Computed example of a mutant assay.
Amino acid sequence: MTKARLKLHVRILSENEIAFGPGKAELLEAIQRTGSISQAAKCMNMSYRRAWQLVETMNQCFRSNLVETQTGGTHGGGAVVTELGQLVLNKFRIMEQQAIQAVESEFEELSNYMKVK
């Protein structure tokens, strides 16, 4: 028998755009690890174009860029998560944990009424 699970998705909206959410957080973490939007996209099985769209949306929704890019040269280009990007990512991960903690006891009670536990 499988166990009931709780899965929350926290999203921050700016007008009708998703300024930040789980996918963008994962992308920022991948950019931090790889130093590249292209490599981050590969790690996530995402097209380079889609990764760029997500980065552009994030950069447009915040006061300053969350990701900065360097154009290629003899050592190639790259990307870095800015100080603001790191702050947003950290705050977002804290918000996710707080959201889970806020509903955990209600979920536990609700799961008692499910066929799966």
Rank of each mutant, 00 (worst) to 15 (best):
M1P: 15
K3N: 10
K3L: 08
R5W: 04
R5P: 05
L6G: 00
L6F: 00
L8D: 06
L8F: 02
H9P: 02
H9M: 09
R11W: 03
I12D: 00
I12N: 01
L13N: 15
S14H: 13
S14K: 14
N16T: 13
E17H: 14
E17V: 14
I18T: 14
I18L: 10
A19Q: 05
F20P: 13
P22I: 09
P22L: 12
G23K: 15
A25D: 05
E26T: 15
L27V: 07
L28Q: 02
A30K: 14
A30W: 07
I31K: 03
R33P: 04
T34S: 11
T34Q: 09
G35P: 02
S36R: 10
S36Y: 09
S36V: 13
I37H: 01
S38K: 14
S38T: 14
S38G: 11
Q39N: 13
A40L: 07
A41Y: 10
A41C: 09
A41Q: 08
A41E: 07
K42N: 08
K42S: 11
K42A: 12
C43H: 08
M44R: 13
N45R: 15
N45L: 08
N45F: 09
S47W: 06
S47V: 05
Y48M: 03
A51R: 07
A51H: 06
W52C: 10
W52G: 11
L54M: 14
E56Q: 11
M58N: 06
M58W: 00
F62K: 00
R63P: 08
S64P: 02
S64I: 02
N65W: 03
N65D: 11
L66E: 05
E68N: 12
E68H: 11
T69G: 06
T71V: 12
G72W: 05
H75S: 12
H75K: 15
H75F: 12
G77W: 02
G77V: 03
G77C: 02
A79E: 06
A79G: 09
V80R: 13
T82Y: 01
T82E: 02
L84S: 09
G85C: 07
Q86M: 11
L87I: 04
L87G: 04
L89A: 02
L89P: 02
L89D: 01
N90H: 12
N90T: 14
R93F: 01
R93W: 00
I94R: 10
M95Q: 03
E96Q: 15
E96L: 07
Q97P: 01
Q98I: 03
A99Y: 06
A102G: 01
A102R: 00
V103L: 03
V103F: 03
E106Q: 12
E108R: 14
S111I: 00
S111E: 05
S111G: 05
S111W: 01
Y113W: 00
K115W: 06
K115Q: 06
K115F: 08
K115L: 07
V116H: 05
K117V: 00
K117F: 01
